[in-house]
Amino acid sequence: MTDLDDAPTVALIDDHPAVLAGLASWYGAADPPVRVLASGSDLAVAQDGPGREADVVVLDLQLSATGPSYDGLRQLAEDGRAVIVYTMLDATDVALTSLDLGAFTYLTKAEGARHLVAATRAAAQSLPYTPPALAGAFGSDTRAGRPVLAPREVDVLLEWFQCESKRMVAQSLGLSVHTVATYLDRVRIKYANAGRPAHTKALLVARALQDGLVALEEL
């Protein structure tokens, strides 16, 4: 039996009570389960009380009838939270903008329990997760703002995606750990300067997928 104290935890933000109840049911039925610490219809769910301690925040991007609101996502991401955008909106520009603002991943509500639970587990462990809708958005991304990476920066980046540590990357490529860290810092700086920050490994994977540096099957 799984120790619930070790289970991933989540805060749910959605303005439809039926959706919140359904998500709680999915997480409770998962094997092993995911613990819902708090749920409700506004950002305070993740900022106050038990929700502050949640590993992952699941956020409905459309909490009003006026269209997607990115302010809440931006605020949570700036606070260092792992945010899964979970929405009815299946739109490439919305998905990519969400990632650019710091979302861990983007799921449509049509993608169901399997992808949501898997994405939540991945987010809790800072591991990349790309559901079908997001993969489609990556494939159709034609926006400008892609930084120009040097060939060695790309080599180090892709090797890092396959390794558990910078030390392993250094051993594989015949570099020092310091040099590997320097290359990765340069890549992050270039993405930040392009207005697409990537503070975590998971976000760097997302950027590399967006920009065609790596294919899903390679991960």
Rank of each mutant, 00 (worst) to 15 (best):
R196G: 02
M1P: 15
S64T: 10
V19H: 08
A82V: 02
D141G: 05
Y70D: 04
T92V: 13
A65V: 11
T179S: 15
G22F: 05
L101H: 11
G212N: 10
A215E: 13
G49F: 05
T182F: 14
V169T: 02
L76F: 15
L43V: 04
Y183T: 03
D71T: 12
A192S: 12
L116V: 01
A24L: 03
A11P: 14
R121L: 08
P151T: 03
A91T: 06
L12C: 00
K201G: 15
D185N: 12
T9C: 02
P131A: 05
V177P: 13
Q171A: 14
A215R: 15
C163H: 00
V85K: 00
L4C: 02
V85L: 03
M168W: 04
Q210M: 14
R143L: 09
P151W: 06
G40W: 04
S172F: 05
L89D: 07
L127G: 05
R186Y: 13
A119Q: 03
E164H: 03
A208H: 11
A11I: 02
I189C: 09
S69H: 08
Q62T: 12
A119W: 06
L116P: 09
S172Y: 05
D48L: 12
G40A: 07
D141N: 09
T200Y: 06
V117D: 05
T182Y: 10
K109T: 01
A192E: 14
A124R: 00
A77R: 08
R188K: 15
L20I: 09
V36E: 00
V10W: 02
V85A: 07
L76D: 03
A194H: 00
T97P: 10
L20T: 03
F104N: 08
N193F: 04
H178Y: 11
T92Q: 05
T142Q: 04
A215S: 11
